[in-house]
Design a protein around this nucleic acid. Structure first.
Lengths: 220, 220
DNA sequence: CGATGTGAAACGGTTCACAGCT
DNA sequence: AGCTGTGAACCGTTTCACATCG
């Protein structure tokens, strides 16, 4: 028996993807001692249009003051709350190759509210060693942990990525960031985001080529 | 005097962003000895809908055979050509911290048609050393190179990213992949794509939280 | 017959322009 | 007077459904 649909504000995916950028800019402003900002200024700093910014923020509620602007601290808090960042979140990085190794040492996670709590690899020669002051464990070990709110970063070769995904989904993980250049298949309710470095370069290569062709048209 | 507009097919950005995925899948199929594939099968392997896949491919031209499917080798070639991958492309990685170091050693670039040709850092202690069998040079040195078709990967701390961008834009670079968590301002005609790891985690955190809330509604 | 290629409808997101509030 | 919040128009993309053709 399904009741009325949840009255929760449905925030568009495109907006969600921009909230982290706004948050980062707001925190920079805060550090600079700015305490009120207009949609125009914030949009400029975030690289978006002011109308779009106001639309995005309107999904969170009315936190601006007409004729004045937005309270920087207040808005930062609201966005952080909406993103679920009021509680610290934990990250497990699976695959201690070049990339996993660098991610383990990357300071950008900790400074933005994420604690890298587990480093995982299945190579017996690596399990038990220390990387970035953290002990590397086997996947088996990770799957015994509490999956609640845990984000798993997959940095294995593509051939093993699906197996890792299956294993962590089975333990209850519902958020995966995939660096392996392959498509992951997961059940509904599990969110996968992918970062494919070669794909990004290929997209740039396309525009690079198109740009050159355009120049030829004008100036053959 | 401008003549008739170029008859070039205008490929939507959304399609361009998927072409690299199709290409990767097609090359896997090729390696497995598959030589014909239907839109249904290819879409499944690429994680998209078959109708969308057919629409995407239609922008490249009619390379399918009705009642049969697509020739794998032919289609892979067409996509590679469209992406400008028939010529090898060069990459410069600027910033030899953790991330830059890992990217320099990452084999995923070379295997997908990109040669990492320059490693750049401005720390005198690092310039001149070898990383992944390549000598690290100063930014100054990079700016004397031919920018044509060069893609610059920025992996510096955010405070230096804009300066690096300005310098490489000035030398004529028109494609930048930015790993620094900040907004880059560049002139028209320069393409910037960004990869922000913490942002990806924050987007996942949002869905993670929403998922938990949804569970509570059903099962409080 | 079977799978492609594509009009047409549906959708989600962006932009415009201004009403509404401080 | 000034800036936010938003209805409405607009635009790009996705999906449907089927005519088309090998």
């Amino acid at each position: 028996m399904s009741t009325a649909p949840a009255p929760r504000r449905e925030i568009p995916d495109a907006t969600v993807a921009r909230l982290p950028v706004y948050l980062r800019v707001l925190r920079t402003l805060l550090a600079d001692g700015v305490d009120v900002v207009s949609s125009e200024e914030l949009a400029e700093a975030a690289g978006v249009r002011s109308a779009g910014l106001r639309r995005d923020l309107s999904y969170l509620g009315s936190y601006g003051v007409r004729g004045v602007g937005y309270d920087v601290a207040r808005l930062a808090d609201e966005i952080a709350r909406e993103l679920g960042l009021t509680q610290d979140r934990f990250v497990a990085i699976v695959g201690m190759g070049n990339l996993g190794h660098a991610l383990a040492a990357y300071s950008g996670f900790a400074t933005r509210g994420f604690e890298v709590r587990w480093l995982v690899d299945n190579d017996p020669a690596i399990v038990g060693t220390q990387i970035a002051e953290r002990c590397v464990v086997a996947l088996e070990e990770l799957t015994r942990q509490d999956p609640d709110g845990l984000i798993v970063v997959i940095a294995t070769p593509p051939a093993q990525a699906q197996d890792v995904a299956d294993a962590v989904v089975a333990m209850g993980v519902r958020s995966i960031l995939n660096f392996a250049p392959c498509v992951l298949t997961v059940p509904d309710g599990v969110e996968v985001r992918k970062v494919d470095l070669a794909t990004e370069l290929q997209i740039l290569a396309f525009h690079e080529q198109r740009g050159r062709d355009d120049l030829r048209e004008v100036n053959p």
